[in-house]
Amino acid sequence: MYAVQTVLHSVIASVLADCALLAWNLKTPAVKQRFRFLALFLPVALFPIYQAIFPRRGDVYFRLESLVDANKWFFLDIWGGIPLLALFVAILILTAAIFFVQEFVPIVFQMLRQARGDEETTEQRQDEPIERKMLEAIEGLPFSEDSVEILNDEDLILFSSTGFQPKIYVSTGLIESFSAEHLKAAFAHEIGHIRRSRKPLLLTAYILRMLMFYNPIAMIEFRKLAQEEEKVCDDIAVGLTGKPGALAEAIDMLRPAEESTKIRGIEGVASGIEHYSHELLLKSRIHRIGERDNDDLNWAMPYFVTVFFIIGVSYFIV
């Protein structure tokens, strides 16, 4: 029952949050994140709170007067005797599988790759022009050049590690491909990620996402939240460099080539979808950098109105 209700409440929270963003025309990524966070946090908390306050919520009498009684749909037969509940459960299982394959396992690989990245940086920095370009790019940014690790790799690689000793990892291929200005913008974006890691929003969101590993709405909302995080870091980068154009060009240069995504079969379809989604995000970021617009609205009232409606409507959905 908890699983069913968290999914249903997630749907309501997601829809109402989107309605709020549309109604008040809220564009600032950090503000949009706060609204999307509702779809992750509230569904986890609401059901136990409702049951504690009104234990008979969910009995027949309540269901008779409810806004939505999910049992009515779940016990509908489809394909000769199989209830719709079976399809619902199948979707939850598929979502859980996607979580483990697409998110949990890659995180483990990422951690291993970062460890490998540490090992690679024990190599001597031999190429002086590369190091000089890196130093030129990091100059003026609030980050120590000692915390920048250069990876000997021709591919365009750039990522950061957070924690007590944050580091930026950049490949020689990327340093060679980018100008100092583009590199500065890219570094500034990573500094944004490092700064943001000190605020617990994304970490908390991911913990909630893990708790609802079966919830397809939580999966979608977390991805949207992560996409907004990229835009927040873009804003930080522009704030640090004062050059939005350089950042937009740097992002454009990071777009993967078409040829590298031609894989056949089901893997090809999944890869194609992932590539298309990534393309859309990068294009949206480039477009947004060009037309950055912050809300001039105090978002507190819209936020509380949205929370109120989510709590109120979700109560009557069982």
């Binding site: 709020a20 109105v305 949205t306 409507v313």
Partner: peptide, 21 residues
């Protein structure tokens, strides 16, 4: 602006509730 947004939100919420019904 806030009031107009609130009005729009209430309309959208009403549509959502009607749909759920």
């Amino acid at each position: 602006k806030i009031s107009r947004g609130l009005l729009w939100f209430l309309v959208m919420a009403a549509v959502v509730i009607a749909f759920l019904t």
